[in-house]
Design a protein around this nucleic acid. Structure first.
Lengths: 337, 337
DNA sequence: ACTTGGCACTCAGGAGTAAGGAGTGCCAGC
DNA sequence: GCTGGCACTCCTTACTCCTGAGTGCCAAGT
């Protein structure tokens, strides 16, 4: 249906439009790319491409602009992910390895990705549900107040205050702490609820109310934090490209955790980097943006996702390269800490 | 120099300009406010006000617009902070009291303030240096790895991993923990360094290297986290008002922690709410924005600052009211937790 | 059957012009 | 010292015209 030359024309249109941000015409194409044919021939090809919905013209006598469908074809078949340069890789590595806790890793990652792509970067915190328990700590902070600290293997630390129904001895706390740790050590957080279900039966009757209180807070922590945390950076980069009046809509969307969540989407099945273009996007108001996202994790374990949001008119090969590279390095950093 | 009527005229100009965003003329003033004089008289007053630098006209034959100096006079002498309505207060209270840890309090506060003022809200995390130690915890997470958890009275929890030079027994850890807590309990964080200086001398020779390692990490934590964390929300509100091309500059400034820091400024000496207008602002690129900020804290103790950033053309009385109210409620919430 | 040059046509965007109107400054009178 | 009147400024909007990039189509060439 579309021969090689027509595909080459489409690729050229995408590339030119991305770099110039202006509708590209047949003459310009013939000049800048050596396709070996005359503008008239290109015009014929363009007519076909337009008929098939890959390109469109803003108004009758203007050049052509890729449609979402056109970008899709470009991403799927006409481009390859562009790896970062060696200096860029080194820069990423040194910048990320300077981080000293999870917050810092995530914070640095999102800034880095924003800077690298000159777009808005979005990073999801490593999922709690897929981590395992490294340690549980109980600390008495007042007569009838405990602090529960939950440390996971991904470096995440959750803490919650527990109001106990009665005063408790240091002894009881020690007992409970030991019990919890033997019970939970190394368990996936998803398994915690079943593992601790019988905890109150294992302690003496005096300690039972306290154990129950601890338990309920522990479970609550797992549930409430299930709504994952997610951050973004680089909003200023939005102002650079011309988003006309929809800029506001984009900013609104960015400030809504739930929307960001949906934006990154589900873990991609086959390829490492997934791309969602324009109207493929679930959100209204983000119809003119694309999202390039990838999973990151330690080894085979996927922990969360990160990605980039920008105008549909973006440099996909480079952006995909940056996202993939950063995802990998974050995984490495997390594995090492 | 400026009689009462001229001040009234200035006030009217500020109010009208804030609500309409258009240069205000003498006729409109006479109509909308009943100043009891004719447009011609107002014109004479306006000429004086302009000569003194309180107002300016964008071009000959346009209405007048307040200058930074004019806003300053308005804020200082012509307006009073507008208290929030009872429903608003209730909404704040219920919304904030739903928070369950410090991160959540700060997160909710910044969103709330942004929504309330329809501008960009900025909240600084409670200062570590002014808090006191509530509890120090040492947890063994591996053979030669400790986790140091520092809990302050403001609910802030800092944790750091310590690589110990040698293996250590649970016993030693317990000893060190006890020592640290008796040493530090209730102390201001600023006093910690001197208080723990002689710690290695108090333990047995075997434990000395471990104690030293713990100590250095503890001090490091205090220092590194001194660079305060600060967050903002409501960037979308910027897009609503017309910032022309400087929007980008504002967004850039917002993403820079240091700039945000300077923006909130020093704790105000006399009044509760401080206002910095336009060029009074230290940052280039924020020349057309104003910052309304206030301290918040528990009781007499100032913990940090929060505020709002918006166009110089903002509703100062309402904004100041919102900032003051939110600051108070955050203090209450922190005191209660 | 495809490619090519030629040509008439379309239409967005900029320049130039004109009318309208809001607002001012000044002056003379009360 | 306030007020109405009046001439003047100049921004804003609307309208027109023109230019040029780009197209679609056709007939001729390979």
């Amino acid at each position: 249906m579309l021969d090689d030359r027509k595909l080459a024309v489409l690729r050229a249109i995408v590339e030119d439009f991305v770099s110039t941000n202006e509708p590209v015409g047949s003459k310009a194409l013939a000049d800048r790319h050596n396709l070996g044919v005359s503008p008239a021939t290109i015009r014929n090809d363009m007519a076909v491409l337009e008929e098939q919905g890959y390109i469109a013209q803003p108004h009758t006598s203007a050049g052509r602009v890729p449609t979402d469908k056109g970008y899709r074809l470009f991403v799927d078949r006409l481009s390859t992910i562009k790896p970062l340069s060696a200096p860029e890789r080194r820069a990423i590595e040194t910048f990320l390895s300077g981080a000293y806790d999870l917050d810092d890793v995530v914070g640095r990652t999102v800034k880095l990705l924003a800077q690298l792509t000159r777009q808005v970067a979005v990073v999801q915190y490593p999922s709690l549900t897929r981590s395992t328990v490294r340690h549980v700590e109980l600390v008495r902070v007042a007569e009838s107040r405990l602090l529960l600290v939950l440390i996971t293997d991904t470096g995440r630390v959750e803490q919650r205050v527990i109001e106990t129904p009665a005063e408790i001895s240091e002894e009881s706390i020690g007992h409970l702490r030991a019990l919890l740790n033997t019970c939970l050590d190394g368990l996936g957080l998803g398994e915690v609820p079943t593992a601790v279900a019988d905890l109150p039966d294992k302690v003496g009757p005096d300690e039972r109310p306290v154990a129950a209180a601890v338990l309920s807070v522990l479970l609550e922590t797992l549930v409430e934090r299930h709504e994952e945390k997610i951050v973004f950076a680089g909003a200023a980069n939005l102002a650079a490209v011309d988003f006309s009046q929809s800029l506001r809509e984009v900013l609104v969307a960015l400030e809504e955790q739930v929307v960001l969540m949906r934006l990154l989407g589900e873990s991609g099945d086959s390829s490492t980097v997934t791309v969602r273009i324009g109207t493929e996007n679930p959100e209204l108001g983000l119809r003119s943006t694309s999202v390039v996202a990838a999973d990151y994790g330690v080894g085979d374990l996927t922990l969360a996702r990160l990605g980039v949001l920008g105008p549909t008119r973006m440099d996909y090969p480079s952006t995909m390269g940056a996202v993939r590279a950063v995802a990998r390095y974050v995984g490495q950093i997390l594995a090492g800490s």
